[in-house]
Write a protein that binds this DNA or RNA. Structure first.
Lengths: 168, 168
DNA sequence: GATGATTACGTTATAACATATCTTTTTGAC
DNA sequence: GTCAAAAAGATATGTTATAACGTAATCATC
C-alpha cells in the first residue's frame, strides 16, 4: 500500500512534468499507433511532447537533457533512442541525417517522404512535400535500374527571415 | 646526417606503402589543388589513393585501419579527418551524410553538386548529376524565400544487380 | 643561409552520438 | 491472481568527431 501510494505520486509527478501537448498532436499519435499496432505509452508521449514544445531540431542528447530537467531524474540514452525509434516508426518524427538531429513531422495528415529546407542560421526547419521532386527522383532511379527504398533530401541554407537579415 | 638518413628511409617506406594511384586521379588532384591554392602532400595523396583503391564508401575509422595496416604505424583520427576535410574542400571526395561514410568523387571533370543512389545490399554508389533535379530544388527553395547553400540528396535502395538478385 | 610567417601534421584528451547486454518493471491476456 | 511478452532501466561499450596544444615542414624575404 505504501508502494501504491509512492507509485501514484510518482505517476502524478511524471505527468505534471510532461510538456503540454495540444490535442491535435495527441490524436495524431493515437491514430498512428492504432494503424500500426503500436502502444502509446506516457514515456513515449512525453518525448513527443518535448520535441513539439521545442519546435527546433534536437539532438538525442539535447533531448535527454531537456527531459531530465523537466522530470528531475536521470534518463538513459538508450531509453530516448528507443522512443525516437518508435516515433520514427510511426512517422511522428523525422531524423535530419545531415545534422544528426530529430524533428517532429509537420504534415500530420498522411505518411509520406519529406524534403527539408534547413536554416543554418536560426535552425528553422521547413518540411516540404513535393510530388514533383519525388517523381523526378523515382525517374532518375528507374533510368539506372535502381530500386529506391527511401530518399534523403536536405537542403541547407538561409530561411527567408535570415536571408533578409543579411544585407544581400 | 643520421637524422637525414632516417628521414629518407621513413619517406621511402611511406611512399612504398601507399596504395597505387592511376595517373588520371593524380592529375585531377594536382589540378584541383592548383585551382584552390591548396597543397597536395604525400599524406593527403595516400588517403585519396586508399579511398580510390577501395572503391566503396569508407567510414573514417575503416579508413584509418586500412592506412595503418598499409603503413604499419598508428594514425590519429584527427589526422585522417583533416585529410578528409582537405579532400572535400577540393571536391575530390564526398561525404555520404546518411551513412557517415566517405567516397571519392566520380565526376572528375568539373565541380558540382551530386546526388547519390546507395545500394543497401552491396554498398555500390552511383553518383548522379541531374541538372533537372538541381533546378527543381532551386525552384522549391525559391518559392519559399529560402536561399540554398548546399543540398544533400541520397537515395537508399537496391542497385540494378542486387535488385535482379532478389526474385521480384 | 638565418628569420619569421604560414600551413600542415602529430598527440592526447574528450565530446557527441549510438548500440549491446542484461535486469527489472509494467502490461494485458487468461 | 498468474504468467508471458513488451517496455523500460542500468551499465558498459563502441563509434564518430572535435578541441587543445605543440612540432615540423615550406616558403618568402632579408
Amino acid at each position: 500500500m505504501i508502494n501504491e501510494l509512492a507509485r501514484g505520486l510518482e505517476l502524478a509527478k511524471r505527468s505534471a512534468t510532461t510538456a503540454p501537448l495540444a490535442a491535435k498532436w495527441r490524436k495524431l499519435a493515437e491514430g498512428r499507433c492504432a494503424e500500426k499496432g503500436e502502444r502509446l505509452t506516457p514515456a513515449r508521449l512525453a518525448v513527443y511532447a518535448e520535441m513539439l514544445g521545442h519546435g527546433r531540431p534536437l539532438s538525442a542528447y539535447e533531448l535527454i537533457a531537456r527531459l531530465e530537467q523537466r522530470q528531475g531524474r536521470k534518463i538513459a540514452p538508450l531509453t530516448v533512442y528507443r522512443h525516437l525509434d518508435f516515433l520514427m516508426r510511426t512517422g511522428l518524427v523525422h531524423r535530419l541525417q545531415s545534422a544528426q538531429t530529430y524533428f517532429p513531422c509537420d504534415h500530420p495528415d498522411h505518411a509520406h517522404e519529406s524534403q527539408f529546407l534547413l536554416c543554418s542560421s536560426c535552425g528553422h526547419v521547413d518540411e516540404v512535400e513535393s510530388s514533383g521532386l519525388e517523381t523526378l527522383l523515382a525517374q532518375i532511379a528507374d533510368e539506372r535500374g535502381f530500386r529506391p527504398d527511401n530518399a534523403v533530401v536536405e537542403v541547407k541554407g538561409l530561411c527567408g527571415v535570415c536571408a533578409v537579415g543579411e544585407q544581400d
